[in-house]
């Protein structure tokens, strides 16, 4: 069976298997879940569907008779359901049931695991390039702490002792914040945890992390955030996307500095996130390739070539889109567009 560009799917059964199918399929932009049904109104998949704003069909035959459906996924394991489905489905609609349906679920789950692995390996490989930045940010406060402590060992003026002790405390706090930020970033993204993510906060968090990957010293920063820019997704994954794009932007300006602009706008139910640099730009004939896995312009050992591939995978999963505007030696703008998420309640 060929899955066309846009597939309308109905899920029958909202138990463990149906719930898993729902969780995995709703991330795929080319798949629309027309509805989910179960004889048991307390089935966990129905609750999840309501959260995801996917239609819950109480009356099973209503869903089976829906002419808009291309593909029925029968996760009930119930022979009666299978028979009824074959008897009443609209002509032309396909059915995946029983072990075929379970196989599909297993395959998708496997792929989603691989995807998570790929993301994590790229993230960890990237952290290697943070070494210089981390060393700088830890060893500078350590130098201050050591120098002050050496002085305190001999200092007799009580006011100076108090002041310098306070300086040491502040320096220790700054240093421990580095480890906190990095462990938060490097942890494995928790799977299927879509929540409301405030984009402006994530941009600031990403900026802190990107500082380790490359020096922002010679870069002028412009931030134009529209309040209320919120999207639905996995916060860890969105952070990863933003760190990636900011790091790329900064790397593009490695020679001679430039301006990094971070902008969010909200209109027509969409959130736009713009990351612009005034760097080297991307050649027109490379634009198609940059999202390919293992594509890199960096020297061997300097980049994994998985950065933008993962960016694209995550943005797709969030039902978002990426647009690039680039001119050689003038700079590049990445625009991410996501459906706007409303705070619950």
């Amino acid at each position: 069976m060929e899955i066309s560009d846009h597939t309308k799917v109905a899920i029958l059964g909202a138990g463990r298997d149906g719930l898993a199918l729902l969780d995995l399929l709703h991330h795929i932009p080319s798949i629309e879940i027309v509805g989910i049904t179960d004889r048991n109104p307390a089935a966990p998949g129905l609750q999840r569907a309501r959260e995801l704003q996917i239609p819950v069909i109480i009356n099973v035959p209503d869903l089976i008779g829906n002419h808009g459906v291309n593909l029925f996924l029968d996760a009930t394991g119930d022979p009666e359901m299978e028979a009824s489905l074959h008897a009443h489905k609209p002509p032309g609609a396909n059915i995946l049931s029983g072990s075929a349906s379970r196989l599909l679920w297993k395959l998708i789950r496997h792929e989603s695991k691989l995807e998570a692995e790929l993301l994590q390996s790229e993230k960890l490989a990237g952290i290697g390039s943070f070494a210089a930045g981390i060393a700088h940010d830890i060893n500078n406060p350590l130098q201050l702490i050591l120098g002050l402590a050496e002085n305190l060992a001999e200092e007799r003026d009580l006011t100076t002792v108090h002041e310098q002790a306070q300086d040491i405390i502040e320096a220790v706090k700054r240093t421990s914040a580095i480890c906190r930020d990095l462990t938060r970033y490097s942890r494995r993204a928790s799977p299927h945890q879509d929540v409301l993510v405030p984009v402006n906060e994530k941009l600031d968090e990403a900026l802190k992390i990107a500082r380790y990957a490359s020096s922002l010293h010679d870069i002028e920063m412009i931030k134009q955030y529209q309040p209320g820019a919120a999207v639905k997704g996995n916060p860890d994954e969105l952070l990863h996307v933003l760190v990636n794009l900011i790091t790329n932007a900064v790397h593009a300006m490695e020679r001679g500095g430039g301006t990094l602009t971070l902008e969010t706008t909200v209109h027509d139910g969409q959130v736009h996130v713009r990351i612009s640099d005034t760097g080297c730009g991307i050649a027109l004939d490379k634009l198609d390739e940059i999202f390919e896995p293992f594509f890199t312009t960096k020297a061997p050992g300097k980049g994994t070539g998985l950065g933008l591939y993962n960016v694209k995978t995550i943005v797709n999963k969030m039902h978002g889109a990426i647009a690039i505007d680039s001119q050689i030696d003038r700079g590049t703008t990445f625009t991410l567009t996501f459906p706007k998420a409303e705070p619950a309640g």
Partner: peptide, 13 residues
């Protein structure tokens, strides 16, 4: 050094 803290402490030393 770009960090005033470092200049301060090196100077003191």
């Amino acid at each position: 050094d770009d960090e005033p803290d470092i200049r301060k402490v090196v100077k003191m030393t």
